[in-house]
């Protein structure tokens, strides 16, 4: 049984425009799947739809089944908010592109990390404090005491994204959904965060749904890819196969574009 089973997912606006059409994919326990596409491809909407987090004015249809161990099988499309809430965090955790908007600007970082720990793991008092320290430590943030006391704007972008990651992982979800988690970061920081992400996923045998526009980034952290264009899956398969031998012209143009730049750099740095 797959951890996440998406079948015939469509997202339609109120005025009837389809933004995602008939999309199907599965993520196995511990599997790592990438959704890749350019702007307007519907990749981020797909991630939101999977979590039942679509903004008002958008409607999902089709089927998204999350089968997290210990939480039972849940059909996410059309499910009531009360049914979805316990799944968020424990079933699947999410990390978004812009950590500054994902964190509450008026709450100290430590309290924000404590929140999911208290809600999902029922920790209190000293136990909770230890868990927060452990969570900060796990995402390799320096000076955990200072970070816990800081407000989001007082730490760097890379540190904020690590905090967001710590929050998403706090309840030890079976699936981590990462929507362009490194796009807003500098390259050197991106490399560090991607490395950390890979380690944490492997350590807990967590599954990953990674949404990105950057083929090089996504290929580094996933085993399988779904290529999206205008809300439709153009091609899907093993990451290595798609990069070596893309079958569809659109995938080919994506790979070639990425290769063009990479080759320019390779020629010099090799």
């Amino acid at each position: 049984m797959s951890l996440l089973d998406v079948t015939g997912l469509s997202v339609v606006t109120d005025s009837g425009r389809a933004l995602v059409s008939d999309l199907s994919f599965t993520v196995e326990q511990g599997g790592r799947l990438g959704l890749i596409g350019e702007s307007g491809s519907g990749k981020s909407l797909t991630a939101l739809a999977v979590m039942g987090l679509l903004p008002p004015g958008l409607t999902a249809s089709g089927s998204v089944v999350l089968d997290a161990p210990g939480l039972g099988r849940t059909e996410m499309v059309g499910a009531a908010e009360s049914r979805l809430r316990p799944l968020r965090g424990r079933g699947a955790g999410v990390v978004f592109q812009e950590p500054l908007t994902a964190l509450d600007p008026l709450m100290r970082v430590g309290r924000q990390i404590a929140e999911p720990l208290r809600r999902h793991r029922g920790l209190r008092g000293a136990e909770l404090r230890r868990a927060v320290a452990a969570a900060i430590d796990r995402v390799q943030l320096p000076e955990p005491d200072r970070i816990a006391r800081a407000f989001p704007h007082e730490i760097s972008g890379g540190q904020r994204q690590r905090v967001a990651l710590a929050m998403a992982l706090a309840a030890e979800p079976a699936l981590l959904i990462a929507d362009e988690p490194t796009t807003a970061l500098d390259v050197t920081v991106q490399a560090e965060v991607l490395g950390l992400l890979g380690e944490l996923i492997a350590e807990k045998d967590m599954a990953l749904l990674f949404v990105s526009h950057d083929l090089a980034v996504v290929s580094g952290v996933t085993d399988e890819l779904v290529v999206l264009k205008d809300g439709r899956a153009v091609e899907s398969g093993r990451t290595a196969d798609l990069l070596h031998a893309p079958r569809q012209p659109y995938t080919r143009s994506l790979v070639e574009s990425a290769r063009t730049f990479e080759n320019a750099l390779e020629r010099i740095t090799r």
Partner: peptide, 17 residues
């Protein structure tokens, strides 16, 4: 050197494979 090493690469993924 650190900047260059940080650039994500398609080819590194392929080499690992």
């Amino acid at each position: 050197a650190r900047l260059i090493a940080s650039v994500p690469r398609l080819l590194s993924a392929l080499r690992l494979e």
